[in-house]
Amino acid sequence: MNVATYGPKGRFTMTDRGRSALRQSAQRIQIGPSSMGWNGNQLVIEVNEVTAPPQLSRVRGMIRVTPSAITDQELPLTQDGAHVWRPFAPVSRIEVDMEAQGWQWQGHGYFDANFGTRALEDDFAYWTWGRYPTRAGATCFYDAQRQDGTHLAQAATFDEGGNVHNTELPETRPMQRSLWQVKRATRGDEGAEPTQVMNMLDAPFYSRSMVKTELQGEPAVGVHEALDLTRFAKPWLKPMIAVRVPRRTRWRFDD
């Protein structure tokens, strides 16, 4: 389970565990000592992890995500449906209660997922994604360059009832490259100049950040990601990933 906190004393944990560490039912999934489950109106995430080197500290606590509504929307990312984006709850409230000073807060959140039957680098060269809270709910953009030379460009606005409204796709607006020189861009009104508000995660192939842009005349600050899968597929990158994503294949439940 990937857990990342940002700002002073921010931590990153993503341990790759074997099949013996998985328990799953219709309402709950447990991966090693951490789990997430649906209690009828909230997604409850229980975190008990150890951060990746070089920090090596415990990340433990509870996160509750309360959707304003659950959508029934799916966006195929490839023409054969091998990859799908599922925005379960684009408009949510979140409560974070971690066992560390200052890691308790409430605010605006969301919950989505990606599913696929092939490796991402087999089908994509590059993509950007962004989700921006607005007065109406939230607006999401998905732009992808596929390996077959085709492109995906999609925009959707979700209201608090979970309904999706087709949104005119604003023009692509360039951004400054990340610290690892991953190229970045997002969408915005004419004249908008998207800027990074906070760096959240910076890797040789991936950037996640808070970005400010302008949508339909309204300033919007949301989460933005850029993923360079051409870089990700390079052999020299795999050892670097292994340091940040250690494997624990023999983890067992006590009972």
Rank of each mutant, 00 (worst) to 15 (best):
A100M: 13
W103F: 15
Q104K: 15
W105E: 13
Q106V: 08
H108C: 06
F111Q: 07
D112R: 01
N114P: 04
N114I: 01
N114F: 06
F115Y: 15
G116P: 09
T117C: 10
A119W: 01
A119I: 04
A119G: 06
L120Y: 08
D122P: 02
F124P: 13
A125W: 07
Y126N: 02
W127A: 06
W127G: 07
T128H: 03
T128Y: 03
T128R: 04
W129A: 04
W129M: 01
R131Q: 11
R131K: 14
T134C: 06
T134D: 04
T134G: 01
R135W: 00
A136E: 13
A136L: 07
G137H: 03
T139K: 05
F141Q: 02
Y142N: 08
D143T: 12
D143G: 02
D143S: 11
D143C: 07
D143A: 06
A144D: 11
G149W: 03
G149F: 09
T150H: 13
H151S: 15
A153H: 15
Q154S: 12
A155Q: 06
A155N: 03
T157I: 00
F158W: 10
D159R: 01
D159V: 03
D159K: 04
G161K: 07
G162V: 00
G162R: 05
G162N: 02
G162A: 02
N163H: 12
V164A: 12
V164T: 09
V164M: 13
H165S: 12
E168Q: 14
E168K: 11
L169Y: 14
T172M: 14
T172Y: 00
P174E: 08
P174S: 05
R177N: 14
S178A: 05
A185C: 07
T186S: 05
T186D: 03
G188K: 07
D189I: 04
E190W: 00
G191F: 08
E193G: 01
E193T: 14
P194Q: 09
P194T: 09
P194V: 04
Q196G: 00
Q196E: 14
V197R: 14
M198R: 15
M198N: 09
M198T: 13
N199H: 10
M200I: 13
M200S: 07
A203R: 13
A203L: 15
A203H: 02
S207R: 04
R208S: 12
S209Y: 04
V211C: 10
V211K: 09
V211A: 08
T213P: 10
T213K: 12
E214M: 14
L215R: 12
Q216S: 12
Q216W: 07
A220T: 08
G222H: 07
G222K: 10
V223G: 00
H224I: 05
H224W: 08
L227I: 08
D228I: 11
L229T: 08
L229S: 10
L229W: 08
T230F: 00
T230K: 06
T230W: 03
F232I: 02
P235A: 09
P235S: 05
